[in-house]
Design a protein around this nucleic acid. Structure first.
Length: 431
DNA sequence: TCTGGGGTCCTAGGACCC
DNA sequence: TCTGGGGTCCTAGGACCC
């Protein structure tokens, strides 16, 4: 038995916590460069702002309704997430943190009324962290996800499901007939693992709701679609196919990619960006104590804009697997120089670390180019300084200096303070 | 003027081997 | 006119998730 605990409109809820005046207004949180709406309050959804909608397209509509837009403050959301996850973990003996705002809880061996238990956890998160959540409970992860969808819809959209399912919903406790009517009221595109494409294909074949879906033989699903979807259907039928991951497995690749605040043309500017991205990726890599065997760099123009398009990437093998910022930046710049072509308006670049391996394995060579121990001490110091005094405190000179140059830096014009992670930005309470 | 970022898994097809 | 069988590895692309 599993529960899925999921924060409602998570980024918006984090922001509202520190600015209660936002609680009655439509609020949207925007992606990097203030490009798209990536989190919306119920009020913002109600006026028709779609997930992922470009802000320049829906801005007027939003402002006519008194909406407030904010730049994404991922430092804040990450910290709020950690606090929420700590409380959610109390619901059962195991937890898998599935994304920034949701975690699966293993309920094996938990006795008593699970709905009551869920309601208690929900209340605690709301009171201590200020984040409203929905909790779904079911015999498989896919059914727990579905129950979570029911819990949220019943709470927000009157008439979608019976009201007693609102906020906390346990599908496992339902008599078969009631479960059937829930499944019948749920479109296949709400199922975890069924996206737009497959939902469309199913609809074309007359499979509209989940009750119809669970009546299909898994072998048929496999033949018509894939083993992935077969697992999904089996899970909906109550058979556990996807187990809980207590520990996140080490990443197989690490990416650091960004759109620019404005298009750039020169190799000089791209070198700055690629330096910064490679440094950032290297820091993430050291955080999981890994080493990369290869590094990939890409640059491309904007498919949304007029003008000649250009998109290329290059992969450079490292002589030895490494997590050293200096070596990775050097390799990234080599790759960039190989793919750069003048005369284009570049809008995005990225660095990907590939072929990742455990950092405790050291491959030596006869003539060492550097002193590995000195270097890893240097990287440790670099990470500690940037952690303590803020990202970018110590950086590679080719990344360029704050304010000057760096024309590509992203726009975040509507950024809120880091209320919970910086002493000088703590909210102040007045009597 | 203006369109995010970071992942995973699976499959098909090509290259290559004996 | 006709061209085997069995296998591995790699990559690109497509699907999905948040």
């Amino acid at each position: 038995m599993y529960a899925l605990v999921d924060g409602n409109n998570f980024y918006v809820s984090c922001e509202r916590n520190f600015r209660p005046s936002l609680k009655t207004r439509p609020v949207v949180v925007l992606s990097n460069n203030d490009g798209c709406a990536i989190s919306r309050s119920n009020e913002a959804k109600a006026i028709g702002i779609r997930m992922g909608a470009p802000w320049f397209e829906c801005r007027q509509l939003a402002e006519e309704h008194g909406a407030v837009a904010l730049s994404a403050n991922f430092t804040l959301y990450g910290d709020m997430s950690n606090r929420m996850m700590g409380i959610a973990a109390g619901m059962g003996p195991g937890q898998e943190i599935y994304s920034i705002d949701e975690s699966f809880i293993d309920l094996v061996g938990v006795r008593g009324d699970l709905v009551k238990r869920g309601q208690d956890v929900r209340e605690r998160i709301l009171q201590w962290i200020g984040i409203p959540t929905g909790i779904g409970i079911g015999p498989t992860k896919t059914l727990a996800k579905l129950a979570n969808h029911v819990a949220k819809s019943a709470d927000r959209k009157p008439g979608s499901y019976p009201k007693e399912f609102a906020r906390v919903c346990n599908l496992a406790a339902l008599p078969a007939a009631d479960l059937d009517s829930v499944l019948e009221a749920t479109n296949v595109d709400e199922v975890w693992g069924i996206g737009r494409r497959i939902a469309k294909q199913m609809n074309d074949e007359g499979v509209m709701n989940v009750r119809q879906l669970v009546q299909i033989d898994p072998a048929t699903i496999r033949r018509r679609w894939s083993v992935v979807l077969e697992r999904t259907v089996r899970e909906l039928q109550g058979q556990q196919c996807i187990s809980l991951e207590h520990e996140p497995p080490p990443k197989q690749e690490i990416a650091y990619t960004r759109s620019f605040g404005q298009p750039v043309r020169s190799l000089f500017e791209l070198t700055q960006a690629v330096t910064e991205f490679a440094s950032g990726a290297a820091a993430k890599l050291r955080l999981q104590n890994g080493k990369a065997g290869q590094i990939n760099v890409f640059i491309h123009t904007s498919p949304f804009r007029e003008g000649p398009q250009y998109s290329r990437n290059a992969t450079v093998p490292l002589r030895r697997p490494t997590s050293d910022t200096l070596l990775l930046v050097r390799a990234a710049i080599t790759a960039l120089q190989a793919i750069y072509k003048p005369g284009f308006n570049f809008i995005k670049a990225g660095v990907m670390l590939l072929d990742l391996q455990d950092g405790s394995v050291e491959q030596h060579e006869l003539a060492l180019e550097d002193e590995p121990e000195t270097r890893s001490a240097l990287m440790g110091t670099l990470d500690r300084l940037n952690d303590r005094f803020g990202r970018g405190t110590v950086l590679m000179a080719s990344a360029g200096l704050e304010g000057k140059e760096r024309s590509w830096a992203m726009r975040q014009n509507l950024l809120t303070p880091q209320y919970t992670t910086r002493w000088d930005e703590l909210p102040v309470a007045r009597a």
